[in-house]
Design a protein around this nucleic acid. Structure first.
Lengths: 133, 133
DNA sequence: CACGACGATGACGTTCACGTAATGCAAACG
DNA sequence: CGTTTGCATTACGTGAACGTCATCGTCGTG
């Protein structure tokens, strides 16, 4: 079962990444698996972080940017000395992401329009063909 | 004025990129500036494409993926031999992008919730301080 | 006409995000 | 008990996306 701890292999199969990737993320301080002897054991927290990492990557964030975002998501783990500052940063990020979504919506609408145009062309091609018969 | 043709320098200032980048995009067949002697002159079409390139990059698309998307946006420039196939690809892309937006919306909501939690903590900290006075 | 600004063309360098051996240890298995 | 299996570390390699440097051609201007 998932006793809250997963080996590197289990992680790889679950999230479709290579061992190299997980070790690399640890080296970059994005993940913090515990050690049983030499072996890495990944916790629930590591899995949550990995999901966010993979999501971040799909939106073109660099690993360094993702690391900073992860810190925002896990402030609860630490003292909240600079909580206020953290919240400021989070607000900025939120603004960025909402702007991004706007842009994405625009791109989607553009592509949709392009598609409609393309379908119109196809339709007219069919008509021509029919007329030629 | 903008006589529909811009030099490499004007392009750089307008879109905040380096000459190297524009030449690189040309080498990768993302842009097709015309030549006056040796010098490149960028057309309206190049500018439209560049905008899409920069937008694509902000969403983590590779230049190769962007090149394929650009072809979708500019099918009109060419013969439409494989128009039907092109439309299929466009539909897939559209699906991807809509899924992406869904995911982004989820990420935004997560961050918002995190923010509300943070603000609550801040508030309770203020209360504690007041109670201690 | 010398000269500096602008642009072109190589060619090599760099950063990021891993891939890919080569080698070693340690538990598990036949 | 030897061997396979799983994971570890170390180190060098790689593709993408440019940066940087050297060198060269060509205008326009004082």
């Amino acid at each position: 079962m998932t006793e809250d701890l997963m080996t590197i292999r289990e992680m790889c199969e679950t999230y479709d990444v290579t061992p190299r990737t997980l070790r690399f993320y640890e080296a970059k301080e994005l993940l913090f698996p515990i050690r049983e002897g030499q072996k890495r054991l990944f916790t629930k927290r590591d899995r949550a972080r990995l999901k966010l990492i993979l999501r971040g990557k799909r939106f073109g964030f660099s690993l360094e940017e993702i690391r900073q975002l992860l810190d925002l998501y896990h402030v609860g783990d630490q003292q909240m000395t600079q909580m206020t500052r953290t919240i400021e940063i989070a607000r900025e990020r939120l603004g960025d992401m909402e702007a991004r979504r706007e842009e994405l919506t625009q791109a989607i609408d553009d592509l949709k329009e392009q598609l409609r145009w393309g379908e119109k062309v196809i339709a007219s091609m069919k008509n021509e063909k029919k007329a030629a018969e």
